[in-house]
Amino acid sequence: MHSGILQAINGVSFAALLFLLASGFTLSFGLMRVVNMAHGAYYLFGGYIGLSITRYTGSFALGVLGGGLAVIPLGYLIDRFLIRRTGENHLAQVLLTVGIAFVLGDVALKIWGGDSLKVPTPIELRGAIELPGGIIYPAYRFVLIVFSVFVGLSLWLLYRKTQIGAVVRAGVDDREIVSAIGINIDRLFVLVSALASFLAGMAGVVGGAFLTLYPGAEWEILVYALVVVIFGGLGSLEGAMIGALIVGLLDAYGRWLLPEFSYFVLFGPMAVLLLFRPRGIFGREG
C-alpha cells in the first residue's frame, strides 16, 4: 500500500518535470509547426549550465534561472538561422534538429565530461517530508511538484487570459488570420521560441537535481516528452498537462510492477490510443 502511494508521488513528480519540458515543445509545434528534436539537448545544456552556475554562486535558484536564460540565445540562433530554413518540411526539421542535438551533446561531453553529475540542491530542500501514514518522501520532489504547478498555472493564465495568449491561440488555429490582422507573427515566434527554450533549460536544472545529468540523458528525456505530447495532442497546453501526468504515472507504476516491460507499459497504451485518436486526447482534427 505504502509503495503504491510512493509510486504515485514518484509519478506525479516526474510528470511535473516532463510538463516543464513538454509544454515548450508542444507550444512551439502548435504555433510554428516545428518539430524540434534538439529540445532534449536544450534540457541537457540548460542543466549543465545551471549546474556550473549553482556550483560557482552557491545559489540553486540562480542556477535554475541562469540555466533557463542561457538556452534562450542558443535556441534563438538555432531557430533563426537553421530551423527557419526548413520551411514546413518535417523530415528536414527532424534530421536537422537531430544533427543539432548531436553537436550540442558532443560539445557538452567535451565541456562537462562523461560522468553523471548531480545539480546540488540547497540544504533546505535536501530533507524528507513525513506524510500522514508514515510515508517519508524527499522534500525536493514536493517542491518540484509545487513549482511545476505554479509554472503550469502561469502558462495557462498567459495562454488563456491575456491578449498575447489569445494571439498565440489564434496562431495555433490559423496562422494566416494572425498575419492578416496585422500582428507581427515573427515577433510572436521569437517570443514563444524563447519561452520554450527557457522552459527546457530550466527543466534541465531542476531535473538534473534528482535524475542527474549525463551524456544520453537528452534523448531519454526527449522520448518521454514526445510521448507526453503524443498523448496530449501536439500544440495543446492542457494536453501537455494531462499527458505528463499519464506518462509520469505509467512510468512509475511500470517500473515498479513490470520492470522488464516498463517501456511496454508506457508505449503500449500510447499505440492503442493512437489507433483510435491519432491526434491525441486534446488534438484537433484537420
Binding site: I230, L234, Y263, F267, A271
Partner: peptide, 14 residues
C-alpha cells in the same frame, strides 16, 4: 506527416 514521424519514433523506442 508529423504524426507518422512521432509515432514511429515512439514505436521504435518500444
Amino acid at each position: 506527416g508529423v504524426y507518422f514521424i512521432l509515432i514511429t519514433i515512439a514505436l521504435g523506442y518500444i
